[in-house]
Amino acid sequence: MTARSSRRVQWGVLIGETVRLLPKARNVTDATLYASKITTPRGTKTPVVYRHSDNDMWHRWIDDVPVPTQLNLFEVSA
């Protein structure tokens, strides 16, 4: 199943191995516009990524390839 389906999608941009969430993005057009405004230290591109839930892997939107991201090794207690 791809991001183009009707299921709820979480959008983000991949910066190195870290995903920055785009909570205001409603679709790929919004995500791409937000990604174009992000500046990185070396001026590298920030690919748009998506997933359907917190349990899914992130995938690049353009070619649906899974992307490796950093693992969260520590839980934050409130």
Rank of each mutant, 00 (worst) to 15 (best):
Thr18Met: 06
Gln70Val: 12
Phe74Ile: 04
Gly43Pro: 10
Trp58Lys: 03
Leu21Ser: 15
Asp64Met: 04
Trp58Gln: 04
Ser77Gly: 01
Arg60Met: 05
Leu14His: 04
Asn72His: 06
Thr32Cys: 02
Met1Ile: 08
Val48Asp: 05
Asp56Gln: 10
Tyr50Gly: 13
Trp11Gly: 06
Val76Tyr: 10
Ser53Trp: 09
Val9Ser: 05
Arg42Trp: 06
Ala35Lys: 09
Ala3Thr: 03
Val76Cys: 00
Leu21Arg: 13
Gln10Ile: 02
Ala25Met: 13
Val65Arg: 05
Ala35Trp: 07
Thr69Ser: 01
Val13Ser: 03
Arg42Ser: 12
Arg60Asn: 06
Thr18Leu: 14
Gly43Arg: 07
Glu17Gly: 01
Thr40Ile: 07
Val19Glu: 07
Arg26Gln: 15
Lys24Tyr: 02
Ala35Pro: 00
Asn55Arg: 15
Ile62Pro: 04
Ser6Asn: 14
Val49Asn: 03
Ala78Gly: 00
Arg4His: 10
Thr44Gly: 10
Pro66Leu: 01
Asn27Glu: 09
Glu75Ile: 01
Ser5Ile: 09
Leu33Lys: 08
Asp56Leu: 07
Arg8His: 10
Asn72Asp: 14
Ile15Pro: 10
Pro68Thr: 01
Ser6Phe: 11
Thr46His: 01
Val48Arg: 12
Thr69Asn: 05
Pro68Ala: 00
Ile62Ser: 15
